[in-house]
Amino acid sequence: MRFTAIIDGTIGSAVEQARALAGFLEEGLHAGAPGGPPGRPWSGLECETLAFYADDREREQLIALAPTIAVRLVRAPERRPDLLAATLAATAGEDGPDLFLFTSGQAGTEVAARLARRAGGSVLTGALDISLEPDRLLGRRQVYSNHMVGRFALTARPWCVAVDPGWAEARAPACEEHRVLSESDAIADASEPPFADLKLTDPPSAGDLAEARVVVVAGAGAGDRDGVARIAAAAERMGAAFGVTRPVAMNAWAPMERLIGVSGARVAPALAIVAGASGAPAFLWGIERAGVIVAVNSDEHAAIVGEADAVAVGDGVAVVEALAGLVAPPPDHG
């Protein structure tokens, strides 16, 4: 069986993509049933990385990032999922890979879906793990807005799988040795490029969230813009990073880059303090890797109560402000 991992180096997230693929290969790809023992069961498979790049200066870095020894480089125009899909479809077929592995997000999901459609294969996005059987692929992913996990079977090849974004934090050891098998150009397209005047603006999410040791989150229970601002100020006093739930961002009570959850950032602090959030699974996904979760909610029946280590049943703003007074700010903060 053969697989190809795809890195889209024409956009600025190649490092995160490579990390997610490496993490998935280390722990998410099984030869038996999902949940079986890890340990590179795929080492017997023929595997390679196909990296697209738009700028020659990215070549060396992409080779170094590849999660497999064998690497193929393909030069492609920037942000053209349709051309990437066409190029990959040309490699599919009888002697082509059984499995194409992508990351989630724009880089992976669109290309995976387009490729499956072009090559007559099947697509699974947001894969938590997969297992390869002789005649089918079994994979699990979140469904029902993260309330449940579904088990899916894919039969038609190639199997086009985009891995869950959570794999980006798996920190698998890098592949040290690489061999470039080929260099080529993506399938060209004579028609006019569909997008013009591309401008990249702000980063996808606030930089302080990813590495924070303490994160304080304000939910809709903060009540209004003022309540959210008071929780943000308390977070700053504690030297903590500040995040919000979707309704808070949607009300423009805080910038979108502060959003935590499946549609925003995923954090892994030692401590997460969550005030006024009900604990919906789409939000919880963003903080569930925290060492300790402490919640404040006025409703003792809120879902977050069972999802936290400790809970105060009370007013979110008042309790977080009181907590800020007890947490000594770190030396470089005051």
Partner: peptide, 26 residues
Amino acid sequence: GAPVTLEGLERIDRTRAGVVVEGDTP
């Protein structure tokens, strides 16, 4: 033409201790 079949659903266990702390004031 695109055979992806759902084989089953599982519940995700996200429960933690959920200790409710004492106190009358914030």
